[in-house]
Computed example of a mutant assay.
Amino acid sequence: MAKNNAKGASKKAQMNSMIDNMVANAGIDKGAFRFNMSILEQVVAEFIEWVKTDINAIKDHMVTGSIQELSLRVNNLNEVEVLGLEHLIYQSRGVSGTQTQHNTPHRFTTLKPPVAPIIEWVKERQLLTKNASKFYDNVAFDGYDEDRQIQQLAFAIREQIYKHGYKGKNYWDKNVDRLRQELNTRVQANLGDQLRFFIYNQYGDNVHNKK
């Protein structure tokens, strides 16, 4: 118990030190700064919950643990950084396939979507027997164990996604707009305009900023 209390006290001391340094540089009242920091942290936490709630409300949506790895880093009252995985953007805005186009700036080219999240989704939704014929022309899995059958179905689904893409679910950009408004209203005017997004693909492109 003493160890936990010491750890908590250490974190509190670090936060107080950070606030002291920020106040010294900013030249504003510590009480007001501490109050604004508290509201700021509350707003960004609410944003994460808005996104997660919208994701979970989508019926049969392919949601894995990785898609919800979203965080916001509060550097100071003038800068908030949003960090997350590229799937957050792709699933929300949609992606065009090689054969079917959708209203989105994102599209598959030479690389196919990763199969691991699809395998997880097939298992979670128990799609092996319920929907196999939708994705796989030959569903005669004779001689395969269950894991191999799931893998075969997942690869077939991946091929369909690669060719035809998928429509967006619209849970990201609308909540980003809402976050900007909340920051401007509840914390500091124009703070929403200082949001910085760090959501990159494997090529180093910031996919959030792609229009």
Score class of each variant (00 low, 15 high):
residue 124 E to N: 12
residue 11 K to W: 15
residue 27 G to I: 12
residue 113 P to D: 02
residue 132 A to S: 12
residue 68 Q to L: 02
residue 178 R to M: 02
residue 103 N to Q: 15
residue 146 E to M: 04
residue 200 Y to A: 09
residue 153 L to Q: 00
residue 43 V to P: 04
residue 83 L to D: 02
residue 15 M to I: 14
residue 144 Y to L: 14
residue 59 K to S: 07
residue 22 M to G: 03
residue 4 N to H: 09
residue 176 V to A: 00
residue 32 A to G: 14
residue 57 A to P: 05
residue 64 T to D: 07
residue 86 E to R: 10
residue 123 K to C: 07
residue 29 D to K: 09
residue 130 K to D: 09
residue 5 N to I: 13
residue 20 D to M: 06
residue 121 W to H: 07
residue 75 N to S: 06
residue 101 Q to R: 13
residue 155 F to P: 01
residue 42 Q to G: 15
residue 87 H to L: 13
residue 181 Q to W: 12
residue 67 I to G: 00
residue 49 E to H: 11
residue 207 V to A: 04
residue 134 K to P: 00
residue 22 M to R: 03
residue 89 I to Q: 03
residue 143 G to Q: 09
residue 18 M to G: 06
residue 86 E to V: 08
residue 55 I to P: 04
residue 110 T to M: 07
residue 30 K to V: 09
residue 31 G to Q: 04
residue 37 M to Y: 03
residue 131 N to T: 05
residue 10 S to G: 05
residue 130 K to R: 08
residue 196 R to Y: 11
residue 111 L to E: 07
residue 65 G to L: 09
residue 44 V to H: 02
residue 210 K to Y: 05
residue 8 G to L: 13
residue 195 L to E: 02
residue 189 A to K: 11
residue 122 V to C: 04
residue 133 S to K: 11
residue 13 A to Y: 09
residue 153 L to F: 04
residue 89 I to H: 03
residue 121 W to Y: 13
residue 24 A to W: 01
residue 22 M to I: 05
residue 84 G to F: 00
residue 165 G to L: 08
residue 139 V to D: 06
residue 185 T to S: 13
residue 197 F to A: 11
residue 153 L to E: 00
residue 182 E to K: 14
residue 64 T to V: 10
residue 151 Q to M: 04
residue 111 L to Y: 15
residue 151 Q to C: 02
residue 192 G to F: 01
residue 124 E to P: 08
residue 27 G to T: 12
residue 150 I to E: 01
residue 13 A to I: 06
residue 32 A to R: 15
residue 81 E to V: 00
residue 182 E to V: 06
residue 70 L to V: 13
residue 53 T to L: 14
residue 111 L to K: 15
residue 147 D to A: 11
residue 166 Y to Q: 02
residue 128 L to K: 03
residue 37 M to I: 12
residue 211 K to D: 04
residue 87 H to N: 14
residue 87 H to W: 10
residue 69 E to R: 14
residue 83 L to H: 03
residue 15 M to T: 15
residue 181 Q to H: 14
residue 149 Q to I: 09
residue 28 I to W: 14
residue 58 I to E: 13
residue 110 T to P: 01
residue 62 M to H: 12
residue 195 L to T: 06
residue 169 K to A: 15
residue 159 E to F: 07
residue 95 V to E: 00
residue 193 D to N: 09
residue 68 Q to M: 03
residue 154 A to C: 04
residue 93 R to L: 15
residue 29 D to S: 09
residue 4 N to D: 14
residue 202 Q to E: 04
residue 193 D to G: 08
residue 46 E to D: 15
residue 182 E to H: 11
residue 153 L to V: 07
residue 202 Q to S: 09
residue 10 S to T: 11
residue 100 T to S: 08
residue 26 A to Y: 14
residue 11 K to C: 14
residue 120 E to S: 14
residue 201 N to Y: 02
residue 173 D to Q: 07
residue 181 Q to I: 10
residue 154 A to L: 01
residue 144 Y to N: 07
residue 191 L to E: 00
residue 211 K to S: 06
residue 31 G to F: 00
residue 75 N to D: 09
residue 56 N to H: 11
residue 181 Q to S: 15
residue 8 G to M: 11
residue 71 S to R: 10
residue 207 V to N: 02
residue 175 N to W: 14
